[in-house]
Design a protein around this nucleic acid. Structure first.
Lengths: 215, 215
DNA sequence: GTGTCAAGACGGAACGTCTCGTCTCGTGGT
DNA sequence: ACCACGAGACGAGACGTTCCGTCTTGACAC
């Protein structure tokens, strides 16, 4: 492992200026035409100061956006849980559709994803600090649904999440179809049909019946 | 439409040399470090000859790989259709998993996808000449299954295909999990559960068969 | 003769490395 | 308590390199 310089002596002013400049420039010229030189110039910072602390352009941009979402003290995110799984999921999926339609997010997120595909190290950072917590919240909601008997108890939650989100994500990333609230709803409905519990693994009342049968 | 030079006078020797050089170089140094200059040098071709006929690096690489898959006279591809939908799908999905695991395909395909995300024009080419025909074959197999009553007759086939392939594709593209034959099978099984026809829209023949099995 | 070709010169942009001289600390001697 | 010192991060930017996309030249083919 190549050792980094002493983080204690790092200039917080420079760090903030770099992240801010990166955020501004990615909005102004797009990610593809974003250069380290331009970030350094805009931030009033030496190029070496960027190369000293970040390994790549993608890492800077990732940090720039992480700094936004990590600003709030609410690190743990939770999803709606009204007890009505279908309604909750539709709310979340429609919100995701709306988020993807926002042109302000479109560019940077698309750029980050492009970079992540080809840079496993950056992908690990992304997963650990952004995607990971979100996915854990989704898993928690599905676990709650399992407890309520609305989802197969033995379902693979990773597979379930992929089933629910991958189609939406792919459609957005590759622009392979329209992203509408109706599509989000359809996805939730077909997802629920796939993950519905079998009749012989239900809760409470059915549980005692099952015990009788096995005994 | 920007007027192209006269294609009749185009040098086939140069074209082939360029495509071959592109294929070799993308394997040797990867797509990211692939340069037009290197392609021209390897092909023994002037840079202008490349710029004359292709708009971008991605277009050259796309053409290079299209030239491979279009070489055979079998333009129309068909998927196995033994009547057993589950078995057929598992064969195809396992084959897809194996293909994605091949390191020789990994690099170029990943590169093409990266480019396609950010270049809608290239994406259109890709869809029309590579992904399109494949997807149509998949749709045809699902339509056959609908006719056989193995799939809901009113199912949205585009949604169905996304449900089946997007999770696999996403796992590969973002390296977010292991790609195993068991995963392929699990995906097919949960897909079939989601797309199974409702009881009240079966034909007479399948209806009695289902009643017998469940009884 | 007109247009494509190979070859490569050209100006420009951005890369990543490398000095410079400055500024900011923590530490230790007094 | 003070302050001189040294380590090291800093802003600035020169440097050599790579690659871009355009342009020029002379050879060759239709």
């Amino acid at each position: 492992m190549v050792k980094q310089p002493n983080p204690a002596r790092r200039s917080e002013r420079s760090r903030q200026a770099i992240l801010t400049a990166a955020r501004e420039l990615v909005s102004e010229v797009g990610y593809a035409k974003l250069s380290i030189e331009a970030i350094a110039a805009r931030a009033g910072v030496g190029k070496q100061t960027i190369y000293r602390w970040w390994p790549s352009k993608g890492a800077v941009v990732l940090d720039a956006f992480l700094a936004l979402s990590e600003s709030g003290p609410e690190d743990s995110m939770t999803l709606p849980d009204t007890g009505d799984l279908e309604a909750d999921l539709k709310v979340v999926m429609r919100a995701t559709v709306a988020e993807f339609a926002d042109p302000a997010f479109e560019g940077p997120i698309r750029a980050l994803n492009t970079e992540i595909i080809n840079d496993p190290a950056l992908a690990a950072q992304y997963r650990a600090r952004l995607a990971g917590p979100v996915e854990e919240a989704k898993r928690a909601r599905l676990r709650s649904a399992q407890r309520a008997g609305q989802l197969a108890a033995d379902a693979d939650l990773d597979l379930a999440l992929e089933l629910l989100y991958a189609p939406l994500y792919q459609r957005w990333l590759f622009r392979s179809g329209p992203l509408t609230p109706a599509y989000a709803d359809a996805l939730v409905e077909v997802f629920l049909k796939a993950m519905r519990p079998d009749v012989d693994q239900l809760t409470d009342a059915q549980d005692s019946a099952k015990l009788e049968k096995s005994g």
